[in-house]
Design a binder for these strands. Structure first.
Length: 928
RNA sequence: GGGCGGUUAGCUCAGUUGGUUAGAGCGCCUGCCUUACAAGCAGGAUGUCGGGGGUUCGAGUCCCUCACUGCCCA
């Protein structure tokens, strides 16, 4: 084991090497099973596919670190673990990216035409589309790269088409003219989810509409005066006394005359939507440009008058406003109204406006022909699946959020007026206007047989194809040769449902909810591996959903480009190493809370990595010495520990017992998604127990004196050191895969028992002997050492000077001190141990409930400081005693509290009493 | 407007179904260049658990209320 490790840990050297090794060796590939009923236990997880246009951000890094920890952990626990990566074609985002590029060349997509433009996007994707996955490789993600998919590749596209056609045939897809959220920049409809609402201070305009009969007027209130050109009515509440007499009358709509024609006349009607307390109580009705007005229009059979085009410019040939942008039109209309004396007043008004998530532009509600999914039947199953517990949410509160949304769901607008995406497989007939929906490109209209058909130009919402991923990546639909129904594939049989989905709450509705709806809908038709009919509990796309928080900056601010506080993970990785960043994220990832990413913490975990590195150097150094001294040093099989003879030193029995407990704790924590607790348990064990105590004590046992015969204690300690260390590396490896891989390979001197530490067994509690007696003895010994160290410090004993100590205690402690004089000497510079029959109260003594200990040193302690300390302690003990007394003397407490609480309190009371008496005596002994 | 969180040490956060004297990391103070590690070692200080009220033998934990704060939906 003459592995030479550099003195300081340098992640940049090792991380790249192992990242490449893992991919090159296909260590995490899981081949498709031979049959459809592969019985091994599976852990399957789908990577939320990043946009091809994406760049890695801290959110991805958290998401992937968590997934990787869980995947590696499950893999090491013996489950067939499959993590499937891929990217999303991201319709709008990608199209915009390429359009921006074209713009720099002074071109538009229309200049190129649809086919050439789509080709250009593909070319862009070839060049840059892999960037984010390349970045992902640096994170050490243990994914199966052989299964990498793209949502528009040849395997997935036919499945998307199949899903659309099936839904259409089932009557769950319809097309119609409805008000949708229109993005005038991207020039496409977007779904409700893609609209973000923002409170903005705007204006409420009160405008007078004269009655057509000249008998008066009515004043309406609106935030959008420009849309009055599309008004078809004025609405008042049926109960509103002010307007009872006006209901049914006509008003003359100002500014509406085109080509010198007179202004249009529109009715005043009664509708509940008009709220008497809003504005004047009278509102204008513009069905083609407002969702609520559209509903009013439907109720009253009003015409729909579209007055804005796709780019939100007024479309009204012959009108003086024709061609104006919506905001320019607003200004002009307001000015014209004022000129005509029809503008009554303008009030400040705050209202929520809709912004396009993609372009940031104000959404224009617009009436247009779109394709929708009739969502209720799908939502019903999705609600049932979660209600019945077939899908478990962590944190649980998201179950409610999900449920709430599902129960108030609206039909899903799935068509987008884009060029980049899955083109809707529908053809319009020019002859009879019928629609032919087909898996194959049809040659003629299915209704009238005309050959004059053209394909629908719209594409599908990106989330439609990603919503299908949990089954399409495993080969759905695979139609059965006889029935044509989707059939099981070996991959589907083995890996569906997936085990877990890890994601941020921001795509809970976009993606998670859609996968649940589409999964429960489509997979119910696919038989189970044993041939039986699939039930809802096995049709779900995943069994669990873990939702993590947001990664914020150190000041808890949301990271945003405009604030300039975005942390680029690659920068941080280059400064501290991937392992340290992963560990930081894990240690702060407590379910339900956001992460305030702190560089200070990352620095701390880089120090941790360095600590482990140096522990390895210590180990290697001693193995070399052992060899030179004639010891036989061969690595044991990974995961086996030496048997411990009766005379095994205390600290060795202790450390194995601790490792056993920590292994149990880590398993429990990860099962509960408590990444923070798991990380902290390992950190504490490695640093606070293994390095601080065990390594130091091992130095005492390792005897390589020249000429000495090999001795069994040295041999056992060395074997234990290596065994514990190797186990700890395995325990840590899901969190810090690079560092552990590097050291683990070095430990085996190029002949490792597996190709990677990631392919070995995860440490389990039962792998190591638990020893409660050793743990409690070690605890006492540690207390003794720490107490002596503190005393020495206070007495001003120079660090290097050894001093004798006196102990007064019970037999157990005395025997412990007596038998571990060498330990005390090494750890607390104790030169000799004497025993006293009387309790020790001098100023050079300290007491615990178990023992009194005094350090023999001629210089006196700082009496003032000591008195202060004792007085403080005394007050604390008094308070503790008082509160314990109060309870112990309380009959209700004694009769109601469980026995173990009462016993515990009694024990604590007794111990505190001892401490109190001792402190009191010590204080008295100090005199004045 | 409807809903969901949060408020614990200087900072960032833990704190299981109420149960003994509330923890961690970082930071801070003191002393150490101890041959694995100064990215280290040893010792130390720091909290009326946001305010008020209630339930209980017992509340950081449950209930009510107020304040501040973050988010989601409309």
């Amino acid at each position: 084991m003459s592995q030479e490790l550099p003195k300081a840990y340098d992640p940049s050297i090792i991380e790249q090497r192992w990242a490449e090794y893992w991919v090159r060796e296909h260590l995490f590939d899981v081949p498709t099973p031979e049959t459809t009923h592969d019985a091994r236990k599976k852990f399957t997880i789908l990577l939320p596919p990043p946009n091809v246009t994406g760049r890695l951000h801290m959110g991805h890094m958290l998401n992937q670190a968590e997934m990787d920890i869980l995947t590696r952990w499950n893999r090491m626990r013996g489950e067939t673990s499959l993590w499937v990566p891929g990217t999303d074609h991201a319709g709008i985002a990608t199209q915009m990216m390429v359009e921006r590029q074209l713009k720099e060349e002074g071109k538009t997509r229309q200049d190129l035409g649809r086919n050439a433009f789509v080709e250009k996007v593909w070319a862009w994707r070839e060049l840059y589309g892999g960037a984010i996955l390349d970045q992902m490789k640096r994170l050490g993600a243990s994914v199966d790269w052989s299964r990498e998919y793209f949502t528009m590749d040849d395997k997935l596209s036919p499945a998307v088409k199949e899903a659309f056609v099936r839904l259409y045939e089932q009557g769950l897809i319809y097309r119609g003219a409805y008000i949708v959220n229109w993005d005038p920049v991207a020039q496409t409809a977007v779904s409700d989810l893609e609209v973000e609402h923002e409170e903005r201070l705007g204006k409420l305009y009160h405008i007078r509409y004269p009655l057509a009969d000249g008998s008066g007027s009515i004043v309406i209130a609106t935030t959008r005066p420009e849309t009055m050109l599309g008004d078809v009515a004025v609405a008042v509440n049926p109960t509103d006394d002010r307007y009872l007499a006006l209901q049914g009358k006509l008003v003359r709509l100002p500014l509406s005359g085109i080509n010198s024609q007179p202004d249009r006349e529109i009715p005043i009607l009664a509708d509940d939507w008009a709220k008497p307390e809003f504005g004047t109580g009278a509102v204008k009705v513009t069905p083609a440009h407002d969702a609520n007005d559209f509903a009013i229009g439907q109720r009253h059979n009003l015409p729909n008058l579209t007055i804005l085009d796709e780019t939100a410019h007024v479309l009204l040939p012959g009108s003086p406003y024709h061609g104006l942008d919506r905001y320019a039109a607003r200004e002009k209309i307001v000015a014209d109204l004022e000129a005509q004396g029809l503008l009554v007043e303008i009030k400040e008004h705050t209202n929520a406006i809709g912004l396009s998530q993609r372009t940031g532009v104000v959404i224009e509600p617009r009436l247009s022909q779109q394709w929708f999914i009739k969502i209720q039947p799908l939502a019903d199953k999705a609600i049932e699946a979660v209600d019945k517990g077939y899908i478990k949410f962590t944190p649980d509160q998201y179950r409610k959020t999900y449920d709430e949304w599902m129960r108030n769901i609206h039909d899903w607008c799935i068509s987008r007026q884009l060029w980049w995406g899955h083109r809707i497989p529908a053809w319009h007939c020019k002859a009879c206007a019928a629609i032919t929906v087909s898996r194959e490109t049809p040659t003629h209209c299915a209704t009238c047989n005309s050959t004059d058909i053209t394909q629908e130009t719209d594409v599908l919402d990106t989330w439609f194809s990603s919503g299908l991923l949990p089954f399409t990546v495993f080969g759905w639909p695979n139609p059965n040769a006889d029935t044509g129904m989707p059939d099981l594939t070996p991959d589907l049989g083995a890996f569906y449902p997936t085990q877990l989905l890890v994601t941020g709450f921001d795509i809970l509705f976009f993606w998670v909810a859609r996968m649940i709806m589409l999964g429960t809908h489509f997979m119910l038709d696919v038989p189970m591996p044993d041939g039986s009919k699939r039930e809802l509990k096995d049709a779900v796309p995943f069994r669990e959903v873990y939702i993590h928080g947001l990664v914020r900056d150190a000041n808890r601010e949301k990271m945003s480009k405009t604030k300039g506080n975005v942390i680029n993970p690659i920068d941080i990785i280059e400064r501290f190493g991937t392992d340290a960043v992963r560990f930081t994220l894990a240690s702060m990832a407590s379910p339900g809370t956001d992460i305030a990413f702190s560089e200070a913490r990352t620095e701390g975990y880089r120090a941790f990595a360095n600590k482990i590195w140096n522990a390895a150097r210590f180990l290697f150094m001693n193995v070399d010495r052992a060899r030179e001294a004639g010891y036989n040093m061969t690595m044991r099989e990974s995961g086996t520990v030496p048997s411990l003879p009766d005379d095994t030193p205390l600290e060795t029995r202790w450390i194995f017992s601790r490792l056993s407990a920590v292994s149990a704790e880590v398993d429990r924590a990860l099962a509960d998604y408590r990444f923070d607790e798991a990380a902290n348990a390992i950190y504490q064990f490695f640093w606070g127990e293994f390095c601080d105590w065990y390594l130091e004590l091992a130095k005492l046992r390792l005897d390589f004196t020249e000429g000495a015969e090999p001795n069994p204690t040295t041999a056992l300690t060395l074997a234990s050191l290596v065994g514990i260390f190797e186990s700890a590396l395995r325990l840590l490896s899901p969190f810090m895969p690079f560092l552990t891989e590097e050291i683990w390979h070095a430990l085996y001197e190029g002949k490792p028992p597996a190709k990677s530490v990631a392919l070995t067994r995860y440490p389990q509690a039962a792998d190591f002997p638990a020893d409660p007696i050793a743990e409690s003895a070690m605890k006492t010994l540690q207390d003794l050492i720490v107490t002596v160290r503190g005393l020495r410090k206070e007495l001003g004993v120079p660090e290097k000077e050894a001093t004798p100590i006196t102990i007064h205690a019970g037999n157990r402690v005395l025997a412990l001190a007596d038998g571990n004089a060498d330990v005390l000497s090494r750890m607390a510079r104790v030169s000799a141990v004497e025993f006293a029959t009387e309790s020790l109260t001098g100023s050079n003594a300290r007491s615990t409930a178990e023992f009194d200990v005094a350090v023999i040193y001629e210089r006196q302690i700082d009496v003032v400081a000591e008195r202060e300390r004792l007085t403080k302690d005394l007050a604390k003990y008094e308070k503790g005693l008082a509160s314990a007394d109060k309870q112990l003397n309380n009959e209700t407490f004694m009769s109601k509290a469980p026995a173990h609480i009462v016993d515990g309190l009694r024990k604590q009371h007794a111990e505190t009493k001892i401490l109190y008496d001792k402190a009191k005596a010590a204080l008295d002994a100090l005199g004045n």
